[in-house]
Design a protein around this nucleic acid. Structure first.
Lengths: 260, 260
DNA sequence: TAGTGGTCTAGACCACTTC
DNA sequence: AAGTGGTCTAGACCACTAA
């Protein structure tokens, strides 16, 4: 960045527009002045005005529609993600699915289906091996999914399982929907590997280009990467999973007793 | 963004450099080709080459040093933030501080001190009022802090307390360091308001301009915003706090039993 | 067809680092 | 003094939207 305060025309235009968005002069969904109008109003070149628009886009404050205009970004429906989504009551009866409590009110469950699923048998890298408690290079199953809702991608999940834990189950059936959107816990429980404890680690970062495409992310939208380790009551790890979630659509909630 | 695949020269340069970073050809800390060199190599204008550099900067993959060059961003030391940081053993003895377990090995505790602290008595807005269980407009204390480590800002914390809970305590003493970096739990416990349960809600977003300045954030660095509600065993809320953390420097970890 | 966002050029100047 | 990142201009062209 610039060494001192940024006082160039492009920065000034961006600041003005940002303030207008912040104080409500420009409501969500409102159309911003065109690049050409801004250039004229501020007496700068079109290039400079466009730079201000691009800046706000990178900050995630506006979206631009090619050939149409730039618009203040709409508020996003946010999903609150708490420990309850894993509740045993959701999967003890294997006909229901995990994530049930995340469903919008009145929304048919059918709209939640997994749309893509890809299962491969591969050699565990160091990270996965350590998490699953197998040796590096051992065969493990990877299940790669893109989760959809209302026809739009919501998040990515990549799960890893010890081979012997899931061999022959619907979990590794590549046909989409065979394991539902979370029936894996019920299936594991039936095999005597009932989930009991979980560790979730999360952090945020900017998305990769591939993630921007898969999740249809606008510029300036970070993602939350989550690593989930699921264990049985005996402490055996039965699933190690990575999730990639668009930051603006999820709030993560954890409630716990303060430890001694 | 562009409607189809992005195949402009600037995008191509950015892609090439991004790939070089990803595959290790350009190691962290390595200097990228200069804008002028890139322009010549690709046969484009300097402007276009600069755009590619700016793009990678916005993605958080490189940092640019004015007058010096562009460099692959160094790996950041990451702090793992788990429930243990609130453990009672850390504050039951009021001479020690919370966050003790986050300290780097061998690093003097003194380097962790709060550097700025600002306390104000203000009227609770709806969010704070609801969280603290007081009426909207009631007087509450706000304690605004910037936390430092090794002379550099690490995160922002804004805490809210019910007036009667903290009146006359060191918690609302504006002199920096009076409440240490977490002695507030010990102080509250001494008043019969021992923390027992906590809810943390978090999500990621791009920072505001003010946060970029306060936290010395590079472009392309998201922040994690955390809202923490602390309750006594009786369920009374004794602190409601907002934290703003640079995304790349923290990993959040939660371990819990799967609920029934 | 007209309007709009996105990109690029060629040249210029500025602010800062490095030597 | 030389090198480098950052910004800006004026003009051009392209891709897409909307009527």
């Amino acid at each position: 960045m610039s060494p001192e305060a940024q006082t160039g025309p492009a920065t000034q235009i961006a600041n003005d527009l940002r303030a207008a968005i912040a104080n409500g002069t420009l409501q969500p969904g409102a159309k911003l002045p065109t690049v050409r109008d801004l250039a004229e109003q501020y007496g700068v070149s079109r290039n400079t005005a466009a730079k201000a628009i691009a800046q706000l886009s990178n900050e995630g404050r506006i979206v631009t529609r090619y050939g149409s205009g730039a618009y203040v970004r709409e508020a996003h429906p946010v999903r609150r993600v708490g420990q309850d989504r894993y509740a045993k009551s959701n999967w003890a009866n294997s006909t229901v699915e995990v994530y049930r409590d995340e469903r919008h009110e009145g929304e048919p469950a059918e709209q939640q289906g997994t749309q893509t699923q890809e299962v491969t048998l591969l050699s565990a890298d160091e990270r996965v091996a350590q998490a699953l408690g197998v040796e590096v290079g051992a065969d493990v199953y990877e299940r790669d999914r893109i989760m959809f809702r209302d026809g739009k991608p919501t998040h990515l999940v990549t799960s890893y399982y010890r081979r012997e834990d899931v061999e022959g189950t619907a979990i590794i059936d590549s046909r989409p929907g065979m394991a539902g959107s979370g029936g894996s816990f019920a299936i594991l429980a039936e095999r005597g590997l009932a989930p009991d404890e979980m560790t979730e680690e999360l952090f945020a970062r900017m998305p990769t280009v591939e993630e921007m495409v898969s999740l249809d992310l606008p510029p300036g939208e970070p993602v939350v990467e989550q690593w989930r380790t699921t264990r049985t009551a005996e402490g055996r790890v039965i699933e190690y999973a990575k999730g990639v979630h668009p930051a603006s659509r999820f709030v993560w909630s954890y409630t716990f007793k303060i430890p001694d």
